[in-house]
């Protein structure tokens, strides 16, 4: 990327007001996740005060305490790490599988394409959330199994997108030029076509992170989360039975999830404007 194309990208991204707001919020949340544990170095599982303290009543306990007297602010900060990490890791895993599958299917076509697409459809026909629940339950809930489960239910749309991009790019002249030059299929897929197929993939990936955060929260809420990591979904679920006497236990992590997912979606829209459509070509 040259300096001028970066400037162009920023300019187009900033045209979308919501995207800038979303980027700001996301930046704040990321900073919280990265540096927050400096503010709250202790484990969020520590029972440090009286239980059921309402928010903003006690120094150092901005969001109050939960059923066991744990600091909700500390939980929010540590939960940010968990949610974002799981969101990013599972998206990365889904991308690896999805991009490879779609690229190979779109590039080679024919029988290879048929087989890979039937395989992809197998996963697409099963409802996402239900499959995730079953996978996590079978594999025993842990951070690893959650990342794996989310990745497994998320990769098919990426594969389809990449495949369609590859199908259209495959017949472009610069790809044919590469073939004529003698480059190997592997080289062509990854160094010629893939960089051109990336813009819509980037947009989809950003939205996948949001979905992954939501999926993780839902699984944790239901008690299928890793019992040794405190995530926002866990906090909401733990506060569910006492929501009538202590609304804040579920409320603040809920807001956190809302802000995170919303900001990621806004950034995704901004990316879409900035990266697509591609420069129009002169027609003759």
């Amino acid at each position: 990327m040259t300096a001028s194309s970066l400037a162009e990208f920023t300019r187009r991204f900033s045209r979308h007001g919501g995207a800038v707001l979303g980027a700001a919020i996301l930046f704040a949340i990321t900073m919280l996740a990265v540096f927050g544990p400096l503010l709250y170095p202790e484990s969020p599982w520590r029972m440090v005060q009286k239980p059921f303290l309402p928010p903003m009543m006690t120094d150092g306990f901005l969001f109050g305490t939960d059923t066991l007297g744990r600091n909700i602010a500390a939980g929010l900060v540590h939960g940010a790490r968990v949610s974002l990490l799981i969101g990013l890791a599972s998206t990365a895993a889904a991308l690896v599988v999805g991009v490879t599958t779609g690229a190979v299917a779109g590039f080679f076509g024919g029988r290879v394409d048929d087989v890979l697409m039937r395989f992809t459809e197998l996963f697409q026909t099963i409802p996402n959330f239900a499959l995730a629940i079953v996978l996590v339950a079978i594999l025993q809930p842990s951070t690893d199994s959650i990342v794996l489960a989310i990745a497994i239910v998320s990769w098919p749309p990426i594969a389809r997108l990449v495949r369609s991009e590859f199908l259209s790019l495959r017949s472009r002249e610069f790809v044919q030029a590469s073939i004529v030059q003698g480059q190997s299929s592997f080289q062509i897929i990854f160094t010629q076509i893939l960089p051109n197929a990336l813009p819509p993939v980037i947009v989809m990936a950003s939205l996948m992170v949001a979905t992954a955060v939501l999926l993780e929260s839902s699984l944790s809420f239901m008690g299928l989360g890793d019992p040794n990591t405190m995530s926002w979904g866990y906090m909401i679920g733990a506060g569910r039975t006492v929501i009538r006497q202590a609304w804040w236990i579920s409320f603040f992590p809920g807001i956190a999830i809302l802000l995170t997912v919303l900001s990621i979606n806004l950034v995704g829209e901004g990316l879409n404007d900035a990266l697509n459509p591609r420069l129009s070509r002169r027609t003759r």
């Binding site: 002249e173 610069f174 044919q176 004529v180 030059q181 003698g182 010629q192 051109n196």
Partner: peptide, 20 residues
């Protein structure tokens, strides 16, 4: 063999990889 026969393509806007 490919080395011995090369091609010049029709559309100069489509025959060069925009990201290279």
């Amino acid at each position: 063999i490919r080395k011995r026969v090369q091609m010049i393509f029709q559309d100069p806007y489509a025959s060069l990889n925009p990201r290279r």
